[in-house]
Nucleic acid binder design. Structure first.
Length: 441
RNA sequence: GGCGCUAUCGUCUAGAGGCCUAGGACACUGCCCUCUCAAGGCGGGGACACGGGUUCGAAUCCCGUUAGCGCUACCA
Protein backbone atom coordinates (compact mmCIF):
# COMPACT_ATOMS: atom_id res chain seq x y z
CA UNK A 1 0.00 0.00 0.00
CA UNK A 2 1.47 3.33 -1.03
CA UNK A 3 1.52 6.39 1.19
CA UNK A 4 -1.55 8.63 1.28
CA UNK A 5 -1.49 11.18 -1.50
CA UNK A 6 -0.14 14.62 -0.63
CA UNK A 7 -0.18 17.26 -3.34
CA UNK A 8 0.21 21.00 -3.25
CA UNK A 9 -0.43 24.24 -5.02
CA UNK A 10 2.48 26.61 -4.54
CA UNK A 11 1.73 30.00 -6.04
CA UNK A 12 3.81 33.09 -5.82
CA UNK A 13 1.75 36.03 -4.56
CA UNK A 14 1.85 38.27 -7.60
CA UNK A 15 -1.38 40.07 -6.92
CA UNK A 16 -3.56 38.00 -9.14
CA UNK A 17 -4.48 34.38 -9.73
CA UNK A 18 -3.89 33.31 -13.30
CA UNK A 19 -6.19 30.78 -15.00
CA UNK A 20 -3.19 28.53 -15.55
CA UNK A 21 -2.43 28.62 -11.86
CA UNK A 22 -6.04 28.02 -10.96
CA UNK A 23 -6.17 25.06 -13.32
CA UNK A 24 -2.98 23.65 -11.76
CA UNK A 25 -4.56 24.07 -8.32
CA UNK A 26 -7.71 22.41 -9.61
CA UNK A 27 -5.94 19.36 -10.98
CA UNK A 28 -4.00 18.96 -7.74
CA UNK A 29 -7.18 19.32 -5.75
CA UNK A 30 -9.00 16.81 -7.94
CA UNK A 31 -6.16 14.37 -7.59
CA UNK A 32 -6.19 14.71 -3.81
CA UNK A 33 -9.95 14.40 -3.56
CA UNK A 34 -10.07 11.47 -5.95
CA UNK A 35 -7.49 9.57 -3.92
CA UNK A 36 -8.67 10.70 -0.52
CA UNK A 37 -5.39 12.53 0.02
CA UNK A 38 -4.38 15.97 1.21
CA UNK A 39 -4.27 19.18 -0.78
CA UNK A 40 -1.76 21.67 0.59
CA UNK A 41 -1.44 25.38 -0.10
CA UNK A 42 2.02 26.87 0.19
CA UNK A 43 2.83 30.48 -0.57
CA UNK A 44 6.13 30.89 -2.40
CA UNK A 45 7.08 34.36 -1.28
CA UNK A 46 10.85 34.03 -1.10
CA UNK A 47 11.02 37.34 -2.83
CA UNK A 48 9.87 39.34 0.13
CA UNK A 49 9.44 42.44 -1.95
CA UNK A 50 6.46 40.93 -3.66
CA UNK A 51 4.88 39.61 -0.54
CA UNK A 52 1.90 41.48 0.73
CA UNK A 53 -1.36 40.58 2.37
CA UNK A 54 -3.54 41.82 -0.47
CA UNK A 55 -1.71 39.65 -2.99
CA UNK A 56 -2.08 36.58 -0.82
CA UNK A 57 -5.71 37.38 -0.23
CA UNK A 58 -6.35 37.29 -3.98
CA UNK A 59 -5.13 33.70 -4.01
CA UNK A 60 -7.32 32.69 -1.08
CA UNK A 61 -10.32 34.39 -2.63
CA UNK A 62 -9.82 32.77 -6.00
CA UNK A 63 -9.36 29.28 -4.61
CA UNK A 64 -12.29 29.60 -2.24
CA UNK A 65 -14.49 30.99 -4.96
CA UNK A 66 -13.75 27.91 -7.06
CA UNK A 67 -14.39 25.74 -4.02
CA UNK A 68 -10.83 24.42 -3.86
CA UNK A 69 -10.44 23.99 -0.12
CA UNK A 70 -6.98 23.20 1.21
CA UNK A 71 -6.32 20.77 4.03
CA UNK A 72 -3.08 22.39 5.11
CA UNK A 73 -1.71 25.85 4.58
CA UNK A 74 -2.35 29.43 5.58
CA UNK A 75 -5.56 29.79 7.58
CA UNK A 76 -5.89 26.00 7.68
CA UNK A 77 -2.90 25.00 9.79
CA UNK A 78 -1.18 21.65 9.51
CA UNK A 79 1.82 19.93 11.02
CA UNK A 80 4.29 20.89 8.28
CA UNK A 81 4.10 24.67 8.58
CA UNK A 82 4.81 27.43 8.36
CA UNK A 83 3.29 27.52 4.88
CA UNK A 84 4.91 30.77 3.80
CA UNK A 85 8.39 30.41 2.40
CA UNK A 86 9.31 33.74 3.91
CA UNK A 87 8.94 32.10 7.33
CA UNK A 88 11.00 29.01 6.62
CA UNK A 89 14.47 30.51 6.65
CA UNK A 90 15.87 28.17 9.33
CA UNK A 91 14.78 25.12 7.38
CA UNK A 92 16.45 26.29 4.19
CA UNK A 93 19.63 27.09 6.08
CA UNK A 94 19.66 23.58 7.53
CA UNK A 95 19.30 21.93 4.13
CA UNK A 96 21.85 24.28 2.68
CA UNK A 97 24.35 23.27 5.36
CA UNK A 98 23.64 19.62 4.70
CA UNK A 99 24.29 20.04 1.00
CA UNK A 100 27.38 22.09 1.66
CA UNK A 101 28.77 19.61 4.16
CA UNK A 102 28.37 16.84 1.61
CA UNK A 103 30.36 18.84 -0.91
CA UNK A 104 27.55 19.54 -3.38
CA UNK A 105 27.96 23.31 -3.29
CA UNK A 106 30.56 25.83 -4.24
CA UNK A 107 30.90 29.55 -3.95
CA UNK A 108 30.75 31.36 -7.25
CA UNK A 109 31.38 35.03 -6.73
CA UNK A 110 29.23 35.17 -3.63
CA UNK A 111 26.44 33.12 -5.13
CA UNK A 112 26.15 29.45 -4.21
CA UNK A 113 25.89 26.86 -6.93
CA UNK A 114 24.81 23.27 -6.77
CA UNK A 115 27.11 20.91 -8.62
CA UNK A 116 25.18 18.59 -10.91
CA UNK A 117 26.16 14.98 -11.39
CA UNK A 118 27.25 14.84 -15.01
CA UNK A 119 24.98 11.99 -16.05
CA UNK A 120 21.70 11.23 -17.76
CA UNK A 121 18.66 11.82 -15.57
CA UNK A 122 15.40 10.23 -16.50
CA UNK A 123 12.10 11.75 -15.50
CA UNK A 124 9.28 9.25 -15.35
CA UNK A 125 6.35 11.58 -15.72
CA UNK A 126 2.79 10.51 -14.98
CA UNK A 127 1.56 12.45 -17.98
CA UNK A 128 4.50 12.84 -20.35
CA UNK A 129 6.04 9.42 -19.83
CA UNK A 130 9.77 8.79 -19.60
CA UNK A 131 11.88 11.75 -20.63
CA UNK A 132 15.66 11.67 -20.49
CA UNK A 133 17.90 14.69 -19.95
CA UNK A 134 21.62 14.61 -20.48
CA UNK A 135 23.72 16.59 -18.01
CA UNK A 136 26.89 15.38 -19.70
CA UNK A 137 27.99 18.74 -21.04
CA UNK A 138 28.59 21.36 -18.42
CA UNK A 139 28.56 24.04 -21.10
CA UNK A 140 24.94 23.41 -21.99
CA UNK A 141 23.82 22.31 -18.53
CA UNK A 142 25.67 24.63 -16.18
CA UNK A 143 25.46 24.11 -12.45
CA UNK A 144 22.46 25.65 -10.78
CA UNK A 145 22.55 28.67 -8.51
CA UNK A 146 20.53 28.08 -5.38
CA UNK A 147 21.44 31.08 -3.28
CA UNK A 148 22.17 34.67 -4.17
CA UNK A 149 25.03 36.73 -2.75
CA UNK A 150 22.52 38.58 -0.56
CA UNK A 151 21.57 35.28 1.07
CA UNK A 152 18.15 34.96 -0.56
CA UNK A 153 17.10 31.62 -2.03
CA UNK A 154 16.43 30.54 -5.58
CA UNK A 155 13.10 28.94 -6.42
CA UNK A 156 14.44 25.50 -7.38
CA UNK A 157 16.08 24.96 -4.02
CA UNK A 158 13.32 26.08 -1.69
CA UNK A 159 10.70 24.40 -3.80
CA UNK A 160 12.45 21.04 -3.47
CA UNK A 161 13.24 21.52 0.20
CA UNK A 162 9.63 22.32 0.97
CA UNK A 163 8.34 19.39 -1.02
CA UNK A 164 10.63 17.13 0.96
CA UNK A 165 9.75 18.70 4.30
CA UNK A 166 6.05 18.70 3.57
CA UNK A 167 6.25 15.11 2.40
CA UNK A 168 4.66 15.63 -0.98
CA UNK A 169 4.00 12.37 -2.79
CA UNK A 170 3.12 13.93 -6.15
CA UNK A 171 4.07 17.15 -7.83
CA UNK A 172 1.49 18.19 -10.39
CA UNK A 173 2.45 21.41 -12.10
CA UNK A 174 2.59 23.21 -15.43
CA UNK A 175 4.52 21.76 -18.31
CA UNK A 176 6.87 24.74 -18.16
CA UNK A 177 8.55 22.90 -15.30
CA UNK A 178 9.23 19.69 -17.18
CA UNK A 179 12.71 20.86 -18.16
CA UNK A 180 13.41 21.88 -14.57
CA UNK A 181 12.46 18.51 -13.18
CA UNK A 182 15.75 16.66 -13.78
CA UNK A 183 17.50 19.45 -11.88
CA UNK A 184 15.10 19.01 -9.03
CA UNK A 185 15.64 15.27 -9.07
CA UNK A 186 19.37 15.83 -8.68
CA UNK A 187 18.63 17.98 -5.67
CA UNK A 188 16.48 15.26 -4.12
CA UNK A 189 19.25 12.75 -4.66
CA UNK A 190 21.92 14.97 -3.17
CA UNK A 191 19.67 15.50 -0.18
CA UNK A 192 19.12 11.78 0.17
CA UNK A 193 15.41 12.09 -0.37
CA UNK A 194 13.21 10.01 -2.65
CA UNK A 195 11.68 12.25 -5.35
CA UNK A 196 7.90 12.42 -5.56
CA UNK A 197 6.03 11.34 -8.66
CA UNK A 198 5.76 14.13 -11.19
CA UNK A 199 2.91 15.01 -13.51
CA UNK A 200 3.28 17.93 -15.91
CA UNK A 201 0.06 19.31 -17.24
CA UNK A 202 -0.23 21.24 -20.50
CA UNK A 203 -0.29 25.00 -20.46
CA UNK A 204 -3.30 27.16 -21.09
CA UNK A 205 -2.83 29.35 -24.12
CA UNK A 206 -4.56 32.38 -25.50
CA UNK A 207 -7.19 32.24 -28.18
CA UNK A 208 -4.42 32.81 -30.74
CA UNK A 209 -2.14 30.16 -29.28
CA UNK A 210 0.23 32.54 -27.57
CA UNK A 211 1.05 32.38 -23.92
CA UNK A 212 -1.64 33.88 -21.79
CA UNK A 213 -0.53 37.01 -20.05
CA UNK A 214 -1.91 39.04 -17.24
CA UNK A 215 -3.75 41.47 -19.46
CA UNK A 216 -5.59 38.92 -21.58
CA UNK A 217 -9.29 38.56 -21.22
CA UNK A 218 -10.14 35.75 -18.85
CA UNK A 219 -6.58 35.51 -17.53
CA UNK A 220 -7.39 36.51 -13.99
CA UNK A 221 -9.74 34.58 -11.73
CA UNK A 222 -10.91 37.86 -10.27
CA UNK A 223 -12.32 38.74 -13.68
CA UNK A 224 -14.68 35.75 -13.50
CA UNK A 225 -15.92 36.80 -10.14
CA UNK A 226 -16.48 40.33 -11.36
CA UNK A 227 -18.12 39.32 -14.62
CA UNK A 228 -20.77 37.23 -12.93
CA UNK A 229 -19.76 33.65 -13.57
CA UNK A 230 -21.03 30.79 -11.45
CA UNK A 231 -17.98 29.10 -9.92
CA UNK A 232 -19.33 25.63 -10.64
CA UNK A 233 -19.53 26.49 -14.34
CA UNK A 234 -16.01 27.89 -14.49
CA UNK A 235 -14.68 24.88 -12.63
CA UNK A 236 -16.36 22.56 -15.08
CA UNK A 237 -14.94 24.44 -18.04
CA UNK A 238 -11.42 24.52 -16.59
CA UNK A 239 -11.51 20.77 -16.01
CA UNK A 240 -12.12 20.20 -19.67
CA UNK A 241 -9.02 22.15 -20.63
CA UNK A 242 -6.54 19.34 -20.84
CA UNK A 243 -8.63 16.62 -19.29
CA UNK A 244 -11.45 14.65 -20.82
CA UNK A 245 -13.88 12.14 -19.35
CA UNK A 246 -13.42 10.27 -22.64
CA UNK A 247 -17.07 10.07 -23.44
CA UNK A 248 -19.18 12.89 -24.81
CA UNK A 249 -20.30 14.32 -21.50
CA UNK A 250 -19.40 17.93 -20.83
CA UNK A 251 -21.67 19.22 -18.11
CA UNK A 252 -20.31 17.24 -15.21
CA UNK A 253 -21.12 17.77 -11.56
CA UNK A 254 -18.11 18.29 -9.36
CA UNK A 255 -18.57 14.98 -7.58
CA UNK A 256 -18.54 13.13 -10.85
CA UNK A 257 -15.41 14.92 -11.98
CA UNK A 258 -13.70 13.93 -8.75
CA UNK A 259 -14.75 10.34 -9.25
CA UNK A 260 -13.58 10.23 -12.85
CA UNK A 261 -10.48 12.40 -12.75
CA UNK A 262 -7.24 10.67 -13.49
CA UNK A 263 -3.80 11.94 -14.48
CA UNK A 264 -3.59 9.15 -17.00
CA UNK A 265 -6.16 10.83 -19.20
CA UNK A 266 -4.77 14.33 -18.98
CA UNK A 267 -3.68 15.52 -22.42
CA UNK A 268 -0.19 16.57 -23.30
CA UNK A 269 -1.22 19.30 -25.68
CA UNK A 270 -1.58 22.90 -24.63
CA UNK A 271 -5.17 24.09 -24.64
CA UNK A 272 -6.29 27.38 -26.11
CA UNK A 273 -8.64 29.27 -23.97
CA UNK A 274 -12.11 30.02 -25.35
CA UNK A 275 -14.18 32.42 -23.32
CA UNK A 276 -17.21 31.83 -25.56
CA UNK A 277 -17.35 28.22 -24.48
CA UNK A 278 -16.89 29.22 -20.88
CA UNK A 279 -19.90 31.51 -21.36
CA UNK A 280 -21.91 28.60 -22.70
CA UNK A 281 -21.10 26.54 -19.61
CA UNK A 282 -22.17 29.45 -17.47
CA UNK A 283 -25.51 29.86 -19.18
CA UNK A 284 -26.11 26.11 -19.02
CA UNK A 285 -25.36 26.03 -15.31
CA UNK A 286 -27.57 29.03 -14.65
CA UNK A 287 -30.38 27.46 -16.61
CA UNK A 288 -30.18 24.21 -14.72
CA UNK A 289 -29.39 25.33 -11.20
CA UNK A 290 -32.11 25.33 -8.56
CA UNK A 291 -33.73 28.66 -7.76
CA UNK A 292 -32.23 28.68 -4.28
CA UNK A 293 -28.70 28.60 -5.68
CA UNK A 294 -29.56 31.15 -8.32
CA UNK A 295 -30.95 33.49 -5.71
CA UNK A 296 -27.78 33.12 -3.69
CA UNK A 297 -25.54 33.93 -6.65
CA UNK A 298 -27.65 36.81 -7.91
CA UNK A 299 -28.16 38.51 -4.57
CA UNK A 300 -24.86 40.45 -4.51
CA UNK A 301 -25.54 41.78 -7.98
CA UNK A 302 -28.98 42.96 -7.03
CA UNK A 303 -27.66 44.69 -3.96
CA UNK A 304 -25.00 46.39 -5.99
CA UNK A 305 -27.74 47.70 -8.27
CA UNK A 306 -29.83 48.87 -5.34
CA UNK A 307 -32.56 46.29 -5.80
CA UNK A 308 -33.81 45.05 -2.47
CA UNK A 309 -36.67 42.59 -2.24
CA UNK A 310 -37.38 39.46 -0.27
CA UNK A 311 -37.10 36.03 -1.80
CA UNK A 312 -40.86 35.70 -2.16
CA UNK A 313 -41.00 38.78 -4.37
CA UNK A 314 -37.79 38.01 -6.17
CA UNK A 315 -38.24 34.40 -7.17
CA UNK A 316 -41.13 34.75 -9.60
CA UNK A 317 -39.36 37.65 -11.27
CA UNK A 318 -36.04 35.85 -11.49
CA UNK A 319 -37.73 32.77 -12.89
CA UNK A 320 -38.93 34.76 -15.90
CA UNK A 321 -35.43 35.38 -17.25
CA UNK A 322 -33.31 32.69 -15.67
CA UNK A 323 -33.02 30.68 -18.87
CA UNK A 324 -31.72 33.66 -20.80
CA UNK A 325 -28.92 34.79 -18.53
CA UNK A 326 -25.31 34.26 -19.55
CA UNK A 327 -23.60 36.39 -16.89
CA UNK A 328 -25.08 37.08 -13.50
CA UNK A 329 -24.20 40.72 -13.80
CA UNK A 330 -26.90 41.07 -16.48
CA UNK A 331 -29.64 40.22 -14.07
CA UNK A 332 -30.33 43.59 -12.39
CA UNK A 333 -30.84 45.32 -15.70
CA UNK A 334 -33.11 42.57 -16.96
CA UNK A 335 -35.47 42.81 -14.02
CA UNK A 336 -35.09 46.33 -12.67
CA UNK A 337 -38.44 47.53 -14.03
CA UNK A 338 -40.25 45.11 -11.76
CA UNK A 339 -39.06 46.97 -8.72
CA UNK A 340 -39.81 50.56 -9.57
CA UNK A 341 -42.73 52.43 -11.05
CA UNK A 342 -40.25 54.93 -12.37
CA UNK A 343 -38.81 52.64 -15.02
CA UNK A 344 -37.19 54.20 -18.06
CA UNK A 345 -38.72 54.08 -21.52
CA UNK A 346 -36.43 53.07 -24.33
CA UNK A 347 -36.89 55.75 -27.02
CA UNK A 348 -36.59 53.28 -29.89
CA UNK A 349 -39.19 51.01 -28.32
CA UNK A 350 -41.52 53.95 -27.77
CA UNK A 351 -41.11 55.06 -31.34
CA UNK A 352 -41.73 51.62 -32.68
CA UNK A 353 -44.65 50.52 -30.54
CA UNK A 354 -46.36 53.45 -28.85
CA UNK A 355 -46.45 56.15 -31.52
CA UNK A 356 -48.65 54.41 -34.03
CA UNK A 357 -52.15 55.77 -34.47
CA UNK A 358 -54.66 53.94 -32.31
CA UNK A 359 -52.07 52.44 -30.02
CA UNK A 360 -53.14 54.31 -26.92
CA UNK A 361 -56.72 53.35 -27.65
CA UNK A 362 -55.61 49.71 -27.74
CA UNK A 363 -54.02 50.10 -24.34
CA UNK A 364 -57.25 51.53 -23.01
CA UNK A 365 -59.21 48.61 -24.41
CA UNK A 366 -56.76 46.18 -22.89
CA UNK A 367 -56.99 47.90 -19.51
CA UNK A 368 -60.71 47.61 -19.57
CA UNK A 369 -60.59 43.94 -20.42
CA UNK A 370 -57.98 43.22 -17.77
CA UNK A 371 -59.84 45.09 -15.07
CA UNK A 372 -62.16 42.18 -14.65
CA UNK A 373 -60.34 39.12 -15.97
CA UNK A 374 -60.11 36.31 -13.45
CA UNK A 375 -57.83 34.76 -12.51
CA UNK A 376 -55.06 37.15 -13.45
CA UNK A 377 -52.69 34.47 -14.64
CA UNK A 378 -50.77 33.94 -17.85
CA UNK A 379 -53.15 31.55 -19.65
CA UNK A 380 -56.21 33.63 -18.81
CA UNK A 381 -54.51 36.89 -19.68
CA UNK A 382 -53.41 35.43 -22.98
CA UNK A 383 -56.87 34.12 -23.81
CA UNK A 384 -58.40 37.45 -22.95
CA UNK A 385 -56.00 39.39 -25.14
CA UNK A 386 -56.61 37.09 -28.08
CA UNK A 387 -60.34 37.25 -27.57
CA UNK A 388 -60.17 41.01 -27.59
CA UNK A 389 -58.11 41.00 -30.77
CA UNK A 390 -60.56 38.71 -32.47
CA UNK A 391 -63.51 40.83 -31.41
CA UNK A 392 -61.89 43.97 -32.77
CA UNK A 393 -60.56 42.16 -35.82
CA UNK A 394 -56.93 43.14 -35.26
CA UNK A 395 -53.83 41.09 -34.82
CA UNK A 396 -52.83 40.13 -31.28
CA UNK A 397 -49.50 41.83 -31.97
CA UNK A 398 -51.36 45.17 -32.02
CA UNK A 399 -51.86 44.68 -28.29
CA UNK A 400 -48.84 42.66 -27.39
CA UNK A 401 -46.05 44.99 -28.42
CA UNK A 402 -47.53 48.21 -27.05
CA UNK A 403 -48.44 46.45 -23.81
CA UNK A 404 -44.89 45.16 -23.42
CA UNK A 405 -43.41 48.61 -23.85
CA UNK A 406 -46.08 50.17 -21.63
CA UNK A 407 -45.42 47.96 -18.62
CA UNK A 408 -41.67 47.53 -18.97
CA UNK A 409 -40.43 50.47 -21.01
CA UNK A 410 -38.70 48.18 -23.46
CA UNK A 411 -39.35 46.01 -26.47
CA UNK A 412 -37.29 43.10 -25.26
CA UNK A 413 -38.08 41.14 -22.15
CA UNK A 414 -39.91 38.18 -20.67
CA UNK A 415 -42.97 36.55 -22.13
CA UNK A 416 -45.66 39.25 -21.97
CA UNK A 417 -48.33 37.15 -20.28
CA UNK A 418 -46.00 35.80 -17.62
CA UNK A 419 -44.62 39.25 -17.05
CA UNK A 420 -48.12 40.64 -16.53
CA UNK A 421 -49.01 37.84 -14.17
CA UNK A 422 -45.95 38.47 -12.02
CA UNK A 423 -46.55 42.22 -12.05
CA UNK A 424 -50.12 41.65 -10.87
CA UNK A 425 -53.32 43.27 -11.94
CA UNK A 426 -53.00 46.48 -9.97
CA UNK A 427 -49.58 47.39 -11.21
CA UNK A 428 -50.42 46.41 -14.77
CA UNK A 429 -53.50 48.61 -14.82
CA UNK A 430 -51.64 51.50 -13.22
CA UNK A 431 -48.78 51.20 -15.71
CA UNK A 432 -51.09 51.05 -18.67
CA UNK A 433 -52.92 54.10 -17.36
CA UNK A 434 -49.77 56.12 -16.78
CA UNK A 435 -48.34 55.17 -20.13
CA UNK A 436 -51.46 56.42 -21.87
CA UNK A 437 -51.27 59.73 -20.02
CA UNK A 438 -47.60 60.12 -20.63
CA UNK A 439 -47.77 59.58 -24.37
CA UNK A 440 -51.21 61.14 -24.92
CA UNK A 441 -49.89 64.40 -26.29
C1' G B 1 21.63 28.18 -31.01
C1' G B 2 21.07 23.73 -27.54
C1' C B 3 17.66 20.55 -24.97
C1' G B 4 12.60 19.11 -24.19
C1' C B 5 7.23 18.80 -25.08
C1' U B 6 3.33 18.94 -28.64
C1' A B 7 0.79 18.43 -33.59
C1' U B 8 -7.47 15.59 -35.45
C1' C B 9 -12.79 20.81 -37.64
C1' G B 10 -11.62 28.26 -36.04
C1' U B 11 -11.62 26.31 -30.51
C1' C B 12 -12.10 22.17 -26.56
C1' U B 13 -11.90 17.16 -27.68
C1' A B 14 -13.30 11.40 -28.98
C1' G B 15 -10.18 8.15 -31.52
C1' A B 16 -4.96 3.60 -28.10
C1' G B 17 -4.07 -0.64 -36.71
C1' G B 18 -9.48 -2.46 -39.51
C1' C B 19 -15.95 -0.33 -35.78
C1' C B 20 -13.57 6.36 -39.40
C1' U B 21 -17.00 7.85 -46.16
C1' A B 22 -13.23 10.53 -38.50
C1' G B 23 -17.84 11.14 -33.48
C1' G B 24 -19.41 15.05 -29.70
C1' A B 25 -19.38 20.18 -27.84
C1' C B 26 -18.60 25.69 -28.44
C1' A B 27 -18.68 29.25 -32.31
C1' C B 28 -20.82 30.17 -37.30
C1' U B 29 -25.08 29.13 -40.37
C1' G B 30 -30.31 27.27 -42.58
C1' C B 31 -35.14 25.77 -41.05
C1' C B 32 -38.90 24.87 -37.17
C1' C B 33 -41.18 26.79 -32.69
C1' U B 34 -42.67 31.88 -31.37
C1' C B 35 -45.67 38.04 -28.40
C1' U B 36 -39.94 40.33 -28.28
C1' C B 37 -35.23 38.36 -26.73
C1' A B 38 -33.51 33.86 -25.44
C1' A B 39 -33.93 28.70 -24.77
C1' G B 40 -35.19 24.27 -27.35
C1' G B 41 -35.71 20.89 -31.82
C1' C B 42 -33.96 19.38 -36.74
C1' G B 43 -30.18 20.23 -40.57
C1' G B 44 -25.41 22.48 -42.91
C1' G B 45 -20.33 23.94 -43.80
C1' G B 46 -15.79 22.66 -41.27
C1' A B 47 -10.05 18.60 -39.34
C1' C B 48 -6.31 13.66 -39.23
C1' A B 49 0.42 19.67 -40.57
C1' C B 50 3.76 17.63 -44.61
C1' G B 51 7.00 13.65 -46.55
C1' G B 52 8.83 8.90 -46.13
C1' G B 53 8.48 4.08 -44.15
C1' U B 54 6.23 -0.59 -41.34
C1' U B 55 1.63 -3.40 -42.48
C1' C B 56 -3.00 -7.02 -46.26
C1' G B 57 -4.64 -2.36 -43.89
C1' A B 58 -2.52 3.89 -40.36
C1' A B 59 -5.61 9.61 -37.71
C1' U B 60 -3.64 5.62 -34.82
C1' C B 61 3.32 2.55 -34.97
C1' C B 62 8.55 4.36 -36.67
C1' C B 63 11.79 8.17 -38.99
C1' G B 64 12.42 12.96 -41.04
C1' U B 65 10.63 17.95 -42.14
C1' U B 66 7.82 21.99 -40.68
C1' A B 67 5.21 24.70 -37.05
C1' G B 68 3.82 26.05 -32.01
C1' C B 69 5.15 26.12 -27.02
C1' G B 70 8.52 25.46 -22.83
C1' C B 71 13.39 25.39 -20.48
C1' U B 72 18.20 27.21 -21.27
C1' A B 73 18.36 33.50 -14.89
C1' C B 74 21.86 35.39 -9.05
C1' C B 75 12.43 34.96 -12.13
C1' A B 76 8.87 31.81 -10.06
Amino acid sequence: MSAPVRVRFAPSPTGYLHVGGARTALFNWLYARHHGGKFILRIEDTDRARHNEAAVQVIYDGLRWLGLDWDEGPQAGGEFGPYFQSEREAIYQRYFDQLNAAGHLYDDGGAWRFRFQREVVEVDDLICGKVAFDFGNIEIMPDMTIRRPDGSWIFHFVNVVDDIEMQMTHVIRGEDHLSNTPKHIQLYQALGAAPPRFGHIPLILNKDGSKMSKRDQGASITSYIEAGYAPEAVLNYFCLLGWSPKDDSEILPREEIIARFDLANVNRKGAQFDLAKCDWFNSQYIQQMPMSRYLELVQPWLEKAGIYADAAALEPVLALEKMKVTHLREVPDRISFFFTEDYAFDPAAVEKSLRNPGTLERLAQLSEAYASVTPFDAPTIEAKLKELATTLAVKPAEFIHPARVAVSGRSVGPSLYHMLEVLGRDRVLARLQRTRERFAA
